[in-house]
Amino acid sequence: EVTIKANLIFANGSTQTAEFKGTFEKATSEAYAYADTLKKDNGEYTVDVADKGYTLNAKFAG
């Protein structure tokens, strides 16, 4: 089991951190699915991958 950390950075400057656990593939998929649920209210996002894929920095356009 691994933990994927998602740093969510919103256009207004606020941030949120979420963690997803499971296999690498499952946890990564859940992190992206969570970011997708936030698109409606926060706009499209881009992701910078860090820490060999164990940290995802998602920046929302607003």
Rank of each mutant, 00 (worst) to 15 (best):
G53N: 04
T17K: 09
E44Q: 09
I9F: 14
A18N: 07
A33F: 08
N42F: 15
I4G: 01
K21N: 08
T46Y: 10
A18S: 08
I9E: 07
L8C: 10
D41P: 05
K5V: 14
K59F: 15
K21P: 03
Q16N: 08
A11C: 13
Y45I: 04
N42K: 10
A35E: 01
A18M: 15
G13L: 05
G53Y: 03
F20M: 00
V2G: 03
K52N: 15
T17R: 10
A50M: 13
D41F: 12
S29F: 13
N57R: 05
V47W: 09
T17C: 13
A61G: 12
L8R: 02
L56T: 01
K21H: 14
K39H: 04
A58I: 15
T37Q: 12
K40E: 11
G62Q: 08
V2F: 06
L8M: 13
D41V: 12
G53E: 04
F20V: 01
K5F: 10
F10M: 07
S29Q: 14
T17Y: 14
G22N: 05
T28Y: 12
K39A: 12
A18T: 11
L38Q: 07
L56N: 02
A18F: 15
L8P: 01
T3D: 02
K5T: 15
K5I: 14
Y32W: 08
N12I: 05
Y32D: 00
T15R: 12
L56D: 01
Y34G: 00
E1Y: 14
E25C: 13
A58L: 15
T55G: 02
F60Q: 03
E1T: 12
N7P: 02
N7Y: 13
A27W: 05
V49C: 08
T15S: 11
F10E: 00
T37S: 15
K52M: 14
S14F: 13
N7H: 12
D41G: 09
Y54G: 04
V47T: 07
A33N: 08
D51Y: 04
E1D: 11
G62I: 06
D48V: 14
T15E: 07
Y54K: 07
L56R: 02
F24K: 08
G43S: 02
Q16G: 08
G62L: 07
A27H: 02
E30C: 13
D36F: 04
A33Q: 09
D36H: 10
G62E: 06
T17F: 11
V2A: 06
T17I: 12
A6C: 15
K21L: 07
N12W: 07
T17S: 11
D48L: 12
Q16H: 13
Q16P: 00
Y32K: 06
G22F: 04
A61C: 12
K26Y: 10
S29L: 14
K5L: 11
T15W: 11
E44Y: 09
A6L: 15
A50R: 12
G53W: 03
T23R: 06
E44A: 10
Y34T: 01
Y34S: 01
A6Y: 05
A31P: 01
I9V: 11
A35I: 15
V47L: 09
L38V: 04
E19C: 15
G13T: 05
V47P: 03
D51V: 01
A6V: 15
V2D: 03
F24N: 02
D41W: 13
A61Q: 13
G13S: 05
G53D: 04
K5N: 06
K26N: 11
A58P: 00
E19S: 11
E44H: 10
G62W: 07
N12M: 05
A58K: 03
D51C: 07
K39E: 05
Y34D: 00
K21G: 05
E25M: 10
A6N: 02
N42H: 15
D41L: 13
A58F: 15
A31V: 08
